[in-house]
Simulated scan of single mutants.
Amino acid sequence: MDADFTEEGTVHGGQLRLTHYKTTAYRVRTYQLLSNLPNGTYNLSGWVTSSGGQNSCQLYANSFGGPEQTVAVPTSAGSVQVQVPGIVVTNGQCETGLRTDANAGNYCSLDDVTFAPAQALATAPSATVAAAVQLYPNPTAGTFALAFSLTQASLVRATLLTLTGQVVRVLSDAAQVPAGPHVLALGTGAALPAGAYLVRLACGNQITVRKLLVKQPFR
């Protein structure tokens, strides 16, 4: 079994979580490259749970034009939010991920990852653009829906990625969407191999990522 995988169950929200675990000692990194970002200051956050005992387990951000920034994942049986604040993007991109150097049997899980402008979070914590982001059915054996609610009108773009951040397809191109609840019916296009993927929802400068598990090829 690979040391990084998506499994059913949640740390904080949604239906799936990313887990790092193996019965032998392991080193693993799960990441994605966020591109076409407006330059500025961002915060990276996620909800985690961890057995502890790892040599290191970090949520990190790099490749944004400055030195890498990290936060250690704490030992916790329940969900805990961790944050990498003050990421100053100067080159229009940022790689974010979870990196673990662990002993046999150590585990950590991550979900509900958000990458958003720091100023917006600092000045208006309740002004998150997109909330209640859900994928269903998940796992899916066919088409699926992306549900979300906007607190204000925003440009919305949905992208399907591999677990390493490579773009598989654009699910919904950038379009102005009014405030309120929305559901996008997705899954059309070329046949998609079974496996775990990431769905990235960009609403203005706020980026939310959810895991999607595909049981079998679908169109």
Results as ranks from 00 to 15, higher is better:
Asp2Pro: 15
Thr6Trp: 07
Glu7Ser: 10
Thr10Ile: 03
Thr10Ala: 15
His12Cys: 08
Gly13Ile: 02
Gly14Pro: 09
Leu16Phe: 13
Arg17Pro: 00
Thr23Asp: 15
Ala25Val: 01
Arg27Met: 09
Arg29Val: 15
Thr30Ala: 11
Leu34Gln: 03
Ser35Gly: 02
Leu37Glu: 03
Pro38Phe: 10
Pro38Glu: 06
Asn39Lys: 06
Asn39Trp: 13
Thr41Ala: 00
Tyr42Ala: 02
Asn43Asp: 13
Leu44Cys: 04
Gly52His: 04
Asn55His: 06
Ser56Asn: 03
Leu59Arg: 03
Leu59Met: 08
Ala61Glu: 01
Ser63Tyr: 11
Gly66Tyr: 04
Glu68Ile: 07
Val71Gly: 01
Thr75Arg: 13
Thr75Pro: 00
Ser76Gly: 11
Ser76Cys: 10
Gly78Arg: 05
Ser79Asp: 06
Val89Asn: 04
Val89Cys: 06
Thr90Ala: 12
Gln93Thr: 02
Cys94Pro: 11
Thr96Arg: 03
Gly97Glu: 02
Leu98Ser: 04
Arg99Trp: 15
Arg99Pro: 07
Thr100Asn: 12
Thr100Asp: 10
Ala102Ser: 12
Asn103Phe: 14
Asn106Lys: 03
Tyr107Ile: 03
Asp112Phe: 11
Thr114Pro: 00
Ala116Ser: 14
Ala118Ser: 14
Gln119Asn: 13
Thr123Trp: 12
Ser126Pro: 08
Ser126Thr: 10
Ala127Cys: 06
Ala127Tyr: 12
Val129Phe: 11
Ala130Tyr: 07
Ala132Cys: 05
Gln134Tyr: 09
Pro137Asp: 03
Pro139Ile: 04
Pro139Tyr: 09
Thr140Asp: 08
Ala141Arg: 12
Ala141Asp: 15
Gly142Thr: 11
Phe148His: 08
Phe148Arg: 05
Phe148Met: 09
Arg157Thr: 15
Leu161Thr: 01
Thr162Pro: 02
Leu163Met: 15
Val168Gln: 12
Arg169Ile: 05
Gln176Cys: 06
Pro178Ile: 08
Pro178Asn: 13
Ala185Glu: 12
Gly187Pro: 06
Ala191Asp: 03
Ala196His: 10
Leu201Asp: 03
Ala202Glu: 10
Ile207Gln: 11
Lys215Ser: 13
Gln216Thr: 13
Phe218His: 09
